[in-house]
Design a protein around this nucleic acid. Structure first.
Length: 561
RNA sequence: UGGGGUGUAGCCAAGCGGUAAGGCAACGGGUUUUGGUCCCGUCAUUCGAGGGUUCGAAUCCUUCCGCCCCAGCCA
């Protein structure tokens, strides 16, 4: 176990349950409904459930909560399994579906009726709502609440046979229409749905509801701790009630925790779906999406996401975690792993006037200063180079110590160069060439006379450069909480950041990286971490910027403005 | 207005009657051939507010306030 991992109230409970002998094998489950893609909020739950099982020598089931055939799709089943595996967790033999239990759940329904704990209600959906009462007023009994057991049995069996239409009847638990907890006012446990299920096809035309199916599925699987999010707290009495009425082999304990929120993004499946539908993003795996597939394409590693989930902790208070926390986690991981490479995103030509036009030198560069075992490589140097336009200022402010007229800087792994003059476009005034002289004695980047330089620039030999496309991503929304004004009628889509994606095609990368494949990750020195996008072709590689490096200069500039 | 939760720094979050952990962010400084990394330091006299109990309270009691969730045949 990771000794840096903080405990939390759920782990405390589990440890107590093991110490007291209540359980000697811990069994948890991750129970997604296959109606959408997994996002980083799910990662929190996955890490919690699988992490607890791993750390206490238990197991964690992957169970699809597929009780609503109208919303579910095998496409989501596939993506969910891919994402959980990618995150680094393994359910082994323990892949389950609530739909596997439909027959058992139906039999339990019959049993509930026999025990006079459920009845078939023939009120319309509107009537059921009206009879339910309100938050402050008690509900009233359905006129069908007193139906005899035999009649209920007959009706329920006929519901199952398909003799009725959707909405004609439902099976309801007989609890208490005046309960202050609305979930206990005779909740529906089975409803008629005339839709094919992605796994059971047309075997069923009645389907159990979440409250009924979930606790029983947990019990059937021998789950010891059923971890879910805060909004189910009010459902816990119902979870317990159902298990108490039936001859079940075990009664799992439901424990609720706060779901994850991240600023500058949204986390609900509904909102994420709208972003896709509206074309704000290209797809569920658009690198700006907080989906696991989006983060993966963006260049996030499973390790960084797991680390993030460890760092944020698990508690019961509502929270909105800073995006900077997530970014910290990828940088931490990629700093160790990503090979360094030089690439210029906004090129300006730098000409070394005293360097022979026909000469090319191969200079040795370190692949990763954090990990010497990653070795070195040769990078070609010649008379004409590209450097970053931002690395030159004709009239620099005090704290700017990059290149400017008369100033000397180091070209990484190459030479010291001093700027002599610039050539501008006569029309636009834009700098088109920077003329420098170099000091041959500084080859490799060190001056034998001990002369210091205040800055080191990355560069690419113009003649050898490889052209690439780079996609720069920024936060998807311009507000920390895009949904905060929804009550006032302001749709969250109004806060989409118009600059969340900037595509630049005129970028140059050092040669030598010929066999790139999607997902490969590099640090572009001084710029950030980038990864190869699947849109890459043999002719043009496409890089996604995962995250920038921390940038002290950017902070200095920001403070001034 | 009924029920269920929750308030500790800008953001997460420990703390469970003995005198406010840790991380992110931010800000100083050192090292540095990435203004990166790394390293050092600063950052809550106070825990939503008031009252009470106690030698001692973020922790116990009490009143009040804020915020979140619940009236699907969604999960």
């Amino acid at each position: 176990m990771d000794i840096n991992k903080q405990s939390n109230f759920i782990r405390d409970i589990i440890e107590q349950d093991m110490a007291s002998g209540k359980h000697d094998l811990i069994v948890t489950r991750f129970p997604p409904e296959p109606n959408g893609y997994l996002h980083i909020g799910h990662a929190k739950s996955i890490c919690l459930n699988f992490g607890v099982a791993r750390d206490y020598g238990g197991r964690c089931h992957l169970r699809f909560d597929d009780t609503n055939p109208k919303k579910e799709d095998p496409e989501y089943v596939r993506s969910i399994m891919d994402d959980v595996r990618w995150l680094g967790f393994d359910w082994g033999e323990h892949l389950y579906h609530a739909s596997d239990y439909f027959e058992e759940l139906y039999q339990f329904g019959l049993e509930l009726i026999k025990r006079d704990k459920a009845y078939v209600c023939s009120l319309s959906p509107e009537q059921i709502r009206a009879y339910r009462g309100t938050l402050t007023e008690a509900g009233k009994d359905s006129p069908y609440r007193g139906r005899g057991i035999q009649e209920n049995l007959d009706l329920f069996q006929r519901m199952r046979k398909g003799e009725f239409d959707e909405g004609d009847h439902v099976l309801r638990a007989k609890i208490d229409m005046s309960s202050p907890n609305i979930n206990l006012r005779d909740p529906v446990v089975f409803r008629i749905v005339k839709a094919d299920h992605h796994r059971t096809k047309d075997d069923w035309c009645i389907y159990p509801t979440y409250d009924y199916a979930h606790c029983l599925s947990d019990s059937i699987e021998g789950i010891t701790h059923s971890l879910c999010s805060l909004e189910f707290q009010d459902h816990r009495p119902l979870y317990d009630w159902i298990l108490e009425q039936l001859p079940v082999k075990c009664h799992p304990r439901q424990i609720e925790f706060a779901r994850l929120n991240l600023n500058y993004t949204v986390m609900s499946k509904r909102k994420l779906a709208r972003l896709v539908q509206k074309g704000v993003v290209s797809s569920w795996d658009d690198p700006r999406m907080p989906t696991l597939s989006g983060l993966r394409r963006r260049g996030y590693t499973p390790e960084s996401i797991r680390r993030f989930c460890d760092l944020i902790g698990v508690a019961k208070s509502e929270n909105i975690v800073d995006m900077s926390m997530l970014e910290y986690c990828v940088r931490e991981d990629l700093n160790r792993k990503a090979p360094r490479v030089m690439a210029v995103l906004d090129p300006v030509r730098l000409i070394i006037t005293n360097y022979p036009d026909d000469r090319v030198e191969e200079l040795e560069a370190v692949n990763n200063p954090e990990d010497p075992s990653m070795g070195t490589r040769k990078v070609p140097f010649s008379r004409e180079l590209y450097i970053e336009r931002q690395d030159f200022m004709e009239d620099p402010p005090k704290k700017f110590f990059r290149l400017s007229p008369g100033k000397e800087v180091r070209l990484r792994y190459a030479f010291f160069v001093t700027c002599q003059n610039v050539v501008k476009d006569p029309e636009t005034g834009e700098i088109v060439e920077i003329h420098c002289s170099y000091d041959p004695a500084t080859k490799g980047g060190d001056s034998p006379d001990g002369r210091k330089v205040k800055s080191t620039l990355h560069w690419v030999s113009a003649r050898h450069a490889r052209r690439v496309e780079v996609r720069l991503y920024d936060r998807l929304f311009s507000r920390p909480n895009p949904a905060e004004d929804e009550r006032k009628g302001v749709d969250f889509l109004a806060h989409v950041n118009p600059d969340s994606l900037k595509v630049i095609r005129n970028c140059f990368m050092e040669p030598g990286l010929e066999n790139l494949s999607p997902g490969d990750k590099y640090q572009f020195e001084r710029l950030g971490y980038f990864c190869v996008d699947p849109d890459s072709t043999t002719g043009m590689h496409v890089f996604n910027r995962t995250v920038t490096l921390r940038d002290a200069w950017a902070r200095i500039q920001k403070k001034k403005h």
